[in-house]
């Protein structure tokens, strides 16, 4: 995640990450062994459940990062930067909230959009020069 979905993201890296996450998930479900029983303080069990959920969320993160072909704030797509190397937004196409709907195991999630309306501030390129 750090390598491909961290501070700078590219289409290529994200696509690769998606494959890797799937592999990891398969590996996890095939190889996971949880020791101890259900009826006690059980660290392995606590962790196993949490990791399983993170592996699913990870894929959605990558999907979201792939679909947002602009840079904004903490999401930096190398393909979308200003000449000075700052994040370049695409307000025309991406001024919306991307809300994802779960459709079942291994089904692609469905994108819903909430358009962001700015009535009180003018959208500008951030500059901290």
């Amino acid at each position: 995640m750090w390598e491909y979905c961290g501070m700078a993201r590219t289409e290529e890296g994200l696509t690769k990450a998606k494959g890797l996450i799937r592999e990891l998930r398969n590996e996890f479900w095939n190889n996971v062994t949880v020791l101890g029983s259900n009826e006690e303080l059980n660290m392995s069990l606590e962790k196993a459940g949490r990791v399983a959920d993170f592996l699913e969320l990870g894929e959605l993160m990558v999907d979201d990062a792939l679909h947002r072909r602009e840079s904004c704030g903490g999401h930096f797509r190398l393909e979308s930067q200003t000449e000075e190397g700052e994040a370049k937004r695409d307000d025309e196409n991406f001024a919306y909230v991307a809300a994802w709907e779960y459709k079942g195991p291994d089904q692609p999630e469905v994108l819903h959009k909430e358009e962001l309306v700015f009535e009180n501030v003018k959208l500008t390129q951030r500059s901290y020069k």
Binding site: V62, D64, G74, W100, H112, E114
Partner: peptide, 17 residues
């Protein structure tokens, strides 16, 4: 995540700091 699987939409997961 479990709530998401029960129908709550998950927004902007790629925004991480």
């Amino acid at each position: 995540w479990r709530a998401h699987k029960r129908g709550a939409f998950f927004a902007n997961p790629c925004y991480t700091q």
